[in-house]
Nucleic acid binder design. Structure first.
Length: 566
RNA sequence: CGGGAAAUAGCUCAGCUUGGUAGAGCACCACGUUAGGGACGUGGGGGUCGCAGGUUCAAAUCCUGUUUUCCCGACCA
């Protein structure tokens, strides 16, 4: 492709709306343009990379025995009513009406469509298992789209759904998908981790996320420093064994703590450590108030709280609600005398002579002893794991890293098949619900993740597998007849050999071409310049910056070898 | 949804405090010079200052409302 004939609008300056590297570079290098918040156009370069990523995903999925199909983005609301998600999915679901006022949704995912398809067509265990996937545009009305392609409202996703007669078969496919995803991420040359994950609103039992390591990632990964344990922080189980300090229980006392509301302020005022305080937070779990207690130096993990109550929603109560329910402002609330359900983290049970709010303005209790002064309805693992905690697998201690969630696999079990009546007959003629798995990869997010990880201060650097073009051919000075002639000749030859070459034939100065080339990030660059008079062209490696003089005739041969064409 | 910021030319921004009918750099067009890391000269085109009201003789500028965008948080497969 001649650069003068395609559309690569590069920007010299960074658009002010782009905050993170991948977003800035994809905009500046002319890969994407924003249409609305969280909605983007893919320009020619972006689309080429997207196609290559899709093809890698396709190849690996096909190799794993999955079959491609395509379902509609536009779906009737009835399907969502059947699964129960018309109610439970919330405002993130893009809802709309057709001209007859019939309700529709723009699909954020496709469990409903595929389950309704399969329940009508697959009746026998003989047809199982089957694994079907599509690469398609998804819609989620995110509260806050951000970071360019990383969290959009319209995005491209590969989603696969598998159906099984038994758990064993599901396990097998699930494991195969995990391996497939690893292959995909390895081919993209990404630094990633597979982590244990919470299955969230989509439901089901087991779940793993694929995290591309990056400081701009929205997720925190808790991993062991001496084993391969890794989990999303919201999932990571806390197994710390606490010990009760060997000190005599003192008498409960109410003290005036002034206007100190935070753990830190109260600890400072009373000259104690934060871990001697009981942090009390009032939550609304579905429709019920729940007071959650953790040690002062710990944080409540709302996902664990949600799972504990098997709830749909968990929200921190508003300050007004807290005052109404507990009789004191946030900052002075506590479990003693509180007339609500109380759950406490395991660590609280081991606290002695602790401090907590007294449900009275400006007052705290000191010498509080759980079990004596109050008894929670339940002790449970309620807190976020912290760096330095022992790893849940018993090996090493926990460290944190940030990651971009690029893929997520779930064992759904029978959640959707039961809700939607998708059954089959087993070998005994008995009707059973289909057992399901689902497996997603964010394709457009993957593009941004690669850009995030593979770039330097000058621009993008694509891995060979997904570079938009295989070679960036640059003629330094097109006014030099020999340069111009040889460059064109080379372009024709390479193109005739079916190499995908981007030829910068623009009437620009060398500096402009080099800067644009760095920005665009094609891994190999061939420069036809002055040395062509000695029959030499230069080949530059974008990653290393290394430049080699090559006799014109050798280029084709070397390039063939690089891209494995003989 | 809470908090914060912003919206003026394709991009980055100035002008607003103190109201007087819109500017710079880059980009774009023409001509010339130049030609290996974002050149230079001369001339030129381009903006109902997000939108709607209001105040005023007069509004980019002051007031009110509204929309959009970004950031932090909450939320989220």
């Amino acid at each position: 492709m001649k650069q003068s004939q395609t559309f690569i609008p590069t920007l010299k300056e960074t658009p002010k709306d782009a905050e993170i590297k991948s977003h800035q570079l994809l905009l500046r290098a002319g890969y994407i343009r924003q249409v609305a918040s969280g909605i983007y156009s893919f320009l020619p370069l972006g689309k080429k990379v997207l196609n290559k990523i899709e093809n890698i995903v396709r190849e690996e999925m096909n190799a794993a025995g999955a079959v491609e199909m395509l379902m509609p983005a536009l779906q009737p609301a009835e399907l969502w009513e059947e699964s129960g998600r018309w109610q439970s999915y919330g405002p993130e679901l893009m809802r709309m009406h057709d001209r007859h006022e019939r309700p529709f949704v723009l699909g954020p995912t496709h469990e409903e469509v595929i389950t309704s398809l399969v329940r009508n067509e697959i009746r026998s265990y003989k047809r199982l298992p089957i694994n079907m996937y599509q690469i398609q545009t998804k819609y989620r009305d995110e509260k806050r789209p951000r970071f360019g392609l990383l969290r959009g409202r319209e995005f491209i996703m590969k989603d696969a759904y598998s159906f099984h007669a038994d758990e064993e078969s599901l396990d097998e496919t699930y494991q195969k998908m995990v391996e497939t995803y690893k292959n995909i991420l390895t081919r993209l040359d990404l630094d990633y981790r597979v982590v244990h994950a919470d299955s969230g609103a989509i439901g089901g039992s087991s779940s793993h996320e694929f995290m591309v390591l990056s400081d701009t990632g929205e997720d925190i990964i808790a991993y062991s420093d001496s084993s391969d344990y890794a989990a999303n922080i919201e999932k990571a189980e806390v197994v710390t064994t606490y010990e009760k300090p060997d000190e005599p229980l003192k008498e409960l006392e109410k003290v005036d703590t002034g206007d100190n509301r935070t753990i830190e302020a109260v600890a400072g005022y009373l000259q104690i450590k934060p871990e001697q305080l009981i942090k009390s937070l009032l939550f609304v779990v579905d429709d019920e108030f729940v007071l959650a207690l953790v040690r002062g130096d710990h944080e409540v993990n709302d996902v664990k709280l949600k799972n504990l109550f098997n709830a749909q929603t968990v929200e921190l109560a508003s300050p007004e609600q807290a005052k109404e329910v507990l009789g004191a402002s946030v900052g002075f609330v506590g479990p003693i005398g509180a007339d609500v359900k109380i759950v406490a983290d395991h660590a609280v049970q081991y606290m002695v002579n602790a401090v907590c709010g007294a449900n009275e303005e400006r007052m705290h209790y000191i010498n509080v002893n759980p079990g004596r002064d109050f008894t929670p309805d339940q002790y449970a693992d309620l807190r976020f794991i912290q760096e330095g905690d022992p790893s849940p697998d018993g090996k090493g201690t926990i460290k944190f890293a940030r990651g971009i969630e690029i893929g997520h696999v779930f064992k759904l079990g029978t959640k959707y098949s039961e809700a939607m009546g998708a059954t089959f007959l087993d070998e005994n003629g008995k009707e059973k619900p289909l057992i399901m798995g689902c497996y997603g990869i964010g394709v457009s997010r993957l593009l941004a993740a690669v850009a995030e990880q593979k770039a330097d201060d000058k621009g993008l650097i694509w891995p060979e597998e997904i570079t938009p073009y295989e070679l960036h051919l640059i003629v330094v000075n097109k006014k030099d007849p020999l340069q111009w002639e040889k460059a064109n000749e080379l372009y024709e030859t390479l193109t005739a050999e079916r190499f995908d070459v981007l030829f910068d034939d623009r009437d620009e100065r060398a500096g402009v071409k080099f800067a644009d080339s760095d920005l665009i990030g094609i891994p190999y660059r061939a420069i036809v310049g002055k040395k062509i008079h000695e029959g030499i062209i230069e080949v530059k490696d974008r990653r290393t910056g290394e430049v080699k003089d090559i006799v014109l005739d050798e280029l084709l041969e070397k390039h063939r070898r690089i891209f494995k064409r003989y």
